[in-house]
Amino acid sequence: MQISLDNPASAPQPLSPYYSQVARVEYADGGALLFLSGQIAEGATLAEQSRGVFETIDALLKAHGASLADVINIRTYLTDVTRLDEYGAVRREFLTGTPPTSMTFEVPRLFRPEAQVEVEVVAAVPAAG
């Protein structure tokens, strides 16, 4: 097993120098698990922020040879859980296959005061053919 940490140049850079956006755990068979740090995005509405979050997650996964179809777990942090349907509509635009395992939390505040949603995921990358 090999572990590496990464901030891919092809994806938006982290908001702080104190964390890595992707932890990649490689296995002997060539498969890997990707653990993504929580992602937030700019935007005036929850839908705009959610869309930006999933676009960033998509870019981070692609930088490691994965896609949104490889997501096996998702954790969502919302500042207002009564707006879960609004977030969920955007999420379904990006996660179109079998839904991954999931947890959603309501939190009073996120890293940036204007952030309404933060999402972290785990993806399983199969060994190359």
Rank of each mutant, 00 (worst) to 15 (best):
P126V: 01
R109L: 04
N7A: 11
A47K: 11
A11N: 04
P17H: 11
K62R: 15
V90Y: 06
A66L: 07
E93C: 09
V25P: 06
L5R: 14
L36G: 07
A9I: 04
A89G: 06
R91W: 06
D85V: 00
A128H: 09
R109Y: 01
Q13W: 09
Y27Q: 09
R109N: 05
Y19W: 14
V122E: 04
T45S: 15
V122F: 02
E120V: 06
G31K: 12
L78H: 14
D70Q: 14
L46N: 07
Q21R: 13
M1P: 04
G97V: 05
V71P: 03
Y27G: 02
A23V: 11
L15T: 12
E55P: 03
R51I: 00
K62N: 13
E86H: 11
A41I: 05
E86A: 11
Y19R: 15
L78E: 00
V71M: 05
R75Y: 05
A115K: 00
E120C: 14
E118T: 02
V117E: 04
F54M: 14
R83E: 06
Q13K: 15
P99Y: 02
L68M: 12
P126E: 05
L84E: 15
N73F: 13
R24I: 01
R24P: 00
L36K: 10
P17N: 12
V119D: 00
N73C: 04
T101W: 10
P8N: 14
P12H: 10
V125K: 11
A127I: 01
A123Y: 00
I57M: 08
L68K: 05
Y87P: 02
L84F: 14
V22G: 03
S4P: 02
P14Y: 13
P108W: 04
S37Q: 14
G88T: 01
D58I: 00
G65A: 08
V117C: 07
I57D: 01
S102F: 14
R109C: 02
V90Q: 12
V122L: 10
S20L: 02
G52H: 09
I72K: 15
M1H: 07
T45K: 13
I3H: 11
G129L: 06
E26C: 10
G88K: 02
V121L: 00
N7M: 06
R75T: 06
G43S: 02
S20N: 09
S10K: 08
R51E: 12
P12L: 03
F35Y: 15
F54K: 07
G129F: 07
Y27K: 12
A115M: 08
A59L: 08
F105A: 09
L46F: 12
P99I: 01
L34C: 05
T98K: 15
E48W: 13
A44Q: 15
A11H: 03
G43P: 01
F94A: 10
A115C: 09
L60Y: 14
A32N: 12
G52Q: 13
V90T: 04
T98M: 11
M103K: 15
G43V: 00
S16A: 06
R109I: 00
S50E: 12
E26F: 03
V121S: 00
V122W: 02
